[in-house]
Simulated scan of single mutants.
Amino acid sequence: MKLTSDQLDGFLLRVLVAVAEEESVSRAAAKLNLPQSTVSAGLTRLRTIFNDPLFVRGRNSMVPTARMAELYGRIRSVAADLEGLCVPEATPAPADINREFHIGTLDYISPRFIPDIIARLLQKMPRASIQVHALSLDFDYQESLETGALDLMVGNWGSPPEHLHLYPLFEDEIICLARQSNPVLKGGFSQADYLAADHLGLFPVNANQLGVIDAYLAQMGLRRNVKVVLPYFNNVPNLLVQSDLIFTTCKRFAGEYSKDLPLQIIPSPISFPAMRFYLLWHDRTHRSPACREMRECVVDAIARSDT
């Protein structure tokens, strides 16, 4: 059903306010930088919409009717609100950003990855707050980005969704990590040894897809023996120290733990492609000044990191 209010628009409201303030069609036209005929036509339409003359002739100017006098304050407020809606969003200074950011990631790069990002964000935006969301099989990160439950994702999937914005962070070599006394490593570590060994795996982020390592092996027609599957990376090092399991991962993650634990990094006997890490975000936050600043902070934190 078409309403009377459907005939109103921002232009007509501006005409009405200008005529009311100038008390003259000609002066209102000059103020709006419009032909007088355009303002007169607009006023005619307004009189029909409100079913009231709105202005009548006085001795030296146009005089508002009682109806117009009653409406003027509300109309002026609506016109100002409409104009305000079209003003470009101001870009706040980073120190003035007071917003809660939501970042989805895994602890798969290094123990310092998340702390480095948070430290940089708080340094640049001290009034902001941050929530880091761990990914799991039942976590729909695409829906979370679309609804705003997440502002940003750190990912390393082989084929990220095409509808999301992507910014490449870095690539990392894939190696194997095992305890130093692991008998599997005696006498070398061949492809046959790799496939015959017992492996430690992680739940893939997407329940319907293989992880990066197993997906690549499947493309080659190969399959490893994943004996143990964990939900989190932070349990990996201590389990490796106490078992003969092999863990295939990126070099940055392995390097942190091999410094302090009896673990060794072994070149992978299978030439896996480098693991690509990147940021993902939805178009809903793409133009947000605060979210843009947040993404720049994340990129900067990773660039500064020596992990």
Rank of each mutant, 00 (worst) to 15 (best):
247 F>W: 06
246 I>D: 03
289 P>D: 02
95 A>V: 09
233 F>Q: 08
201 G>F: 06
297 C>A: 12
239 L>W: 11
135 L>Y: 11
111 P>C: 10
132 V>M: 00
177 L>E: 03
293 E>S: 08
58 G>D: 01
88 P>G: 02
10 G>T: 15
141 Y>N: 09
23 E>I: 15
61 S>N: 14
27 R>V: 04
145 L>A: 15
221 G>Q: 12
305 S>I: 04
147 T>Y: 03
107 D>C: 00
83 E>R: 07
232 Y>P: 00
45 R>P: 02
29 A>Q: 06
164 L>W: 14
218 A>W: 10
282 H>L: 13
117 I>K: 02
115 P>K: 05
219 Q>V: 07
236 V>H: 03
43 L>E: 01
189 F>I: 07
218 A>F: 11
250 C>H: 11
113 F>R: 00
217 L>W: 13
78 V>S: 05
56 V>W: 01
119 A>R: 08
221 G>Y: 10
191 Q>R: 12
269 P>D: 05
277 F>C: 07
302 I>F: 03
283 D>C: 07
248 T>D: 13
225 N>I: 08
123 Q>W: 04
305 S>K: 09
177 L>Q: 04
283 D>V: 08
135 L>A: 10
265 I>F: 07
66 A>Y: 09
53 P>Y: 13
96 D>Q: 09
252 R>H: 01
104 G>P: 12
178 A>I: 08
200 L>V: 08
67 R>Y: 15
105 T>V: 15
58 G>K: 10
65 T>D: 00
260 D>K: 11
166 L>N: 03
14 R>D: 07
63 V>H: 10
235 N>G: 14
103 I>V: 11
122 L>G: 01
37 S>T: 13
196 A>Q: 10
174 I>F: 03
179 R>M: 09
